[in-house]
Amino acid sequence: MEFFKFALENNSEGRDKLPCPCYICHNLMYHKADVILNHLSKRQFDRTYTCWHRHVEKREEISSKDAQGHNTDEGNELEDMTSQFVHRVDDDLNVTEEMLSDSEKPLYEGCKYTKLSASLKLYSLKEGHSWTDKSFTTLLEFLIDVLPSDNVFPKNTYRAKKNIMYNGFKLMYSDPVDVEKLTWHKFGLKKDGLLRHPADSPQWRFINGQFPEFGSEERNLHLGLSTDGNDIDVYLAPLIDDLKLLWEEGVEVFDANRNEMFNLRAMLFCTIQDYPAYGNLSSYYVKGEGGCPICEDGWKGKWLSASRKTVYYDHRPFIPLDHKYYAYRKECVDSLIGTLLNISGKTKDGVNARLDLKEMNMRNELNAVETGKRDYFPLAAYTLSKKEKVELCASLAGV
């Protein structure tokens, strides 16, 4: 057999076991030569394995694409991700059963794609073309509807991510070099008082102190969640279930650096989001009178009846007045210029603002003057004439 001869001739490392290219093993399982021969005599050769790169043949660009530029070697992407992991665990079926389930299960009867390879292919298209999660879910729903009824396509974006994620956790530890990077905070951290890594933070030390069993295993993961809050309710509930599983039970993972299995646990260490999403993630009310999660009842906002919004006094109360961050933001400068030039839609000096000042008993000289026929608002001290506005603009242009 041409393939078998090629594989043996290129086994320069003299490995006892090689990846088996039968359609069931799919180059994910490693066997001795006689076992591979037995498999190939009973089973078909994996038809997606057109370039024998698992057995040292050089993969040319033309070999994986047809004349139209379409990918004809879909199995390679999945194999690239999983070969190291499976090679190290060899015949331990308990270890690879979960991963192989998705990588062997056809998307539907007779389909060349598996559940995992289809998820990887579609998700790479999503990322490459900047599809939103919502549009991707809509596409998945359509594909599920048009494909045969026995298809096992993930139902939404979250399920597709989850399908890839659990295999990804295992693959993170399949490379000894990557494992060393994942444990750098334990063995490579410089303790010089500087904050260059989350492990330098008081929060990291506090968590490890509160949960010493978790902190003593340096391979456990401290995860970060970043979200803009869009459609967060769709994903938050199942995400919490997954985080609970990773925290309470963990998943069995093979450590290629130490050549051993261990129970990997993970925790949500920090989140990055805007203020509204912070409320969704923490279940804290970030609107209304008590909108500050730090001050809580110690810092009350005030409702403005005319403007119909809550405002908060004493911005940045924890920063000294001479601090470099205690400065005007762009939005503040825009509002200031808009008010000075009386730009419609930009000025903060309008009817509602004057009515709110009256309600708060502030700047009474700016209250409306009743003349009997028509009320009018007095000009404020900062009101500029047309000539003064031109001079201000010229001055700003010259800065």
Rank of each mutant, 00 (worst) to 15 (best):
D314V: 05
L304F: 12
M165H: 11
T383E: 12
G69T: 11
Y123Q: 09
A380N: 05
L304H: 02
S12T: 13
V89C: 07
P276K: 01
E98F: 05
F169E: 09
L281N: 15
S41A: 15
P378H: 12
K170L: 15
G224L: 14
G69N: 12
H323N: 11
C25A: 12
D92K: 12
R374W: 04
T339A: 02
R43H: 04
K126C: 11
W184P: 08
I24C: 00
G250R: 02
C22T: 04
T114C: 02
L93A: 10
F153W: 10
Q44G: 15
E60A: 11
D228S: 14
E260K: 12
T227D: 05
V86N: 03
D46P: 01
K386S: 14
G229I: 03
N230G: 11
A33K: 00
D274S: 08
F206I: 05
V95A: 15
H55P: 01
N151E: 04
N280P: 01
K115C: 12
D102V: 04
D322T: 06
V311G: 10
N259V: 13
D80F: 05
E77P: 00
W247C: 13
I62F: 13
F254N: 00
I337K: 01
D46C: 03
G215L: 12
R43A: 03
K348G: 15
L93W: 10
D92F: 06
Y235E: 04
D334H: 01
V89D: 08
L243V: 09
A381I: 06
P317S: 05
R54W: 00
G301T: 00
G168K: 14
R54D: 00
Y328P: 00
A397E: 06
S344L: 05
F214I: 07
D349C: 13
D46Y: 00
S174I: 01
L236Q: 09
N167L: 14
N151L: 10
A237T: 13
L304D: 10
Q68R: 15
L304C: 03
N167K: 09
L221G: 00
K105Y: 01
V152C: 15
I144R: 14
E74T: 07
L122N: 07
L18F: 04
D200R: 01
S305C: 02
A394V: 08
K126W: 08
A67I: 10
P106N: 10
K155N: 12
D102H: 12
T72I: 15
S216N: 10
I240A: 12
K309R: 11
D90I: 05
K358I: 03
M267F: 04
R316W: 02
Y326H: 08
Y166R: 02
L357A: 07
D133F: 09
P317G: 06
Y313G: 08
D242P: 07
G298H: 13
G224W: 04
L78T: 01
F142P: 00
L225V: 11
Y30N: 09
T347V: 10
I337Q: 01
R329T: 04
G229W: 06
D241Y: 07
T96N: 02
L268C: 07
D242F: 04
G345H: 02
G193H: 07
E57L: 13
D322W: 09
E359D: 15
K330D: 14
S385R: 07
I62P: 01
L268R: 05
E218D: 13
F187H: 14
E296Q: 13
L341F: 03
H315N: 09
S64C: 15
E141N: 08
